[in-house]
Amino acid sequence: MGKWFFWEVAIAAVIIAISEWKRLQEQPGKDRIVFLALLLAGAVLSFLNLPDTPGPTSVMAYVFKPLRPLVEP
């Protein structure tokens, strides 16, 4: 993964923003905010060292820990 991932995501985000610009102008304010928030969330998350950052996998492993004895071989 490495440091390039952030730049890959950033470039993709810029391309998406440019290509959707025209459509974005026609939408109400809330739609624009959600669009930008999603793009920004992606860009910010890609800044982290994602594979080793605790996230959804750790949360679910914690939540379903009590059920684990059922499935451990």
């Binding site: 985000a13 992606g42 998350l45 994602l50 594979p51 950052t53 959804p56 996998t57």
Partner: peptide, 17 residues
Amino acid sequence: LIVFPVGILILIFSIWD
């Protein structure tokens, strides 16, 4: 409008953790 931004989040979730 949000399809491609959601796609970026899917990419993130595919490697996150």
